[in-house]
Design a protein around this nucleic acid. Structure first.
Lengths: 212, 212
DNA sequence: CAGGAAAAGCTCCGAGTGGAACTTTTTTTG
DNA sequence: CAAAAAAAGTTCCACTCGGAGCTTTTCCTG
């Protein structure tokens, strides 16, 4: 629930009197979206350090301070970018993928979504596990929880249908599958010679019933 | 081959004449080690952003510029810290671990080695996959290559002995095992409720021959 | 055990960052 | 449709960073 503080605060402190708290202007809504869109582009080109509030501001023809009207800190802006991309990904998700345990193609989607996105996520996870950075930490804890649950559903279904062996904990398997995706994409990003799909496919194979 | 430039350069440019190039003084050697040791401590406490050359310098009672005599950039210093820790880990490695496919305990070692070490590595990997940062990129490409090879040896041995199923590619499995370690430790660092060992143990279980 | 050369270290400098106070623009509303 | 109030945006400021040039210390060498 980002950027909702304004309304709350006014609502809480002032209780009578006319005309207060107008909310975002149309122009502001557009600008906010523009910032989110441009940020990932700037990041893809210039990396983490190169993506200062000023650099993003320059890219859209506005001062760095303007961005702070929309996002308290750079950290928060980045988190919102990721949140937005997650929303988009969820919207585009092909339903048929849920029916099968084709994690390899999930991974394909994941890494090819937008240039720089995986790098941004990586950088943010790295920050999230450090002391401080509570904001990003909270986001990722929640996010991993959510994608583990998603994987869990798929695995349970697959166990019911018999395409995944039934003698393993689907909860633990969900963690493992997500971990493999993360880890394989890391290796691939470092060295494109590493074939992530083969790794992911192997895991899928290992998960299949032994009678296969 | 870090810090070797000095000798080379002098050797190359000047060819005759007495007394040139003396190499590091004893004091310098100690200092260099001290910097490496302190850096990880400062990092554990203050995170990536908080670990500026100045902060490290302050921690050992020296100006930030002094550190630059030993390491060209902060990036390079961090890489050397990781290299050093890898060396130590290799030295401490229990030989008996190689005999079995106990990847779970490998992982334990890995994450509990020094506070902040995993976070530092994470942060550096994140930087390495971005444009620029060739220095860290090269280090990690090389490092992952090396640990994949290590895992490969263990897996091949296990296949020969019959503790890992023989119908899978040990190369791909090596990649997968490393990926799982990385990914599980990430999830655990974000949320200690996640039990890495169960994930790793599951993977080991899946790797065992089907007749088990 | 002195003299000197290179190593080790410090101080100051320009660049770039996020934050605060102020100005302009956009809309709402009476 | 004008007045006013909040949103949107800018300019300036204080701080920290890494880098260059200069000084001091260390310790080879004759």
């Amino acid at each position: 629930m980002p950027q909702g503080e304004r309304a709350e605060k006014v609502q809480d402190t002032e209780e009578e009197g006319a005309s207060r708290q107008r909310g975002r202007y149309p122009k502001g809504i557009l600008r906010r979206q523009q910032i989110l869109d441009r940020t990932i582009e700037v990041f893809a080109e210039h990396g983490f350090e190169g993506t200062s509030l000023r650099a993003i501001g320059d890219a859209i023809g506005v001062s760095h301070a303007a961005l702070k009207r929309y996002f308290e800190t750079r950290e928060e802006l980045f988190v919102e970018v990721l949140r937005e991309k997650d929303r988009q990904a969820l919207a585009d998700a092909r339903v048929d993928v849920v029916e099968t345990i084709d994690f390899a193609s999930h991974l394909e989607d994941y890494v090819s979504r937008a240039p720089g996105l995986v790098a941004l996520r990586h950088g943010m996870v790295a920050r999230a596990i450090e002391p401080g950075n509570e904001h990003s930490r909270a986001f990722f804890v929640e996010r991993y929880d959510s994608i583990r649950k998603e994987a869990l559903l798929i695995l349970r279904l697959a166990q019911a249908v018999g395409t995944v062996r039934a003698d393993i904990s689907p909860e633990v398997a969900a963690s493992l599958v997500i971990a493999a995706m993360d880890g394989l994409s890391t290796q691939w990003l470092l060295d494109p010679q590493v074939d992530m799909n083969r790794g992911m496919t192997l895991l899928e194979h290992l998960l299949r019933p032994v009678a296969d």
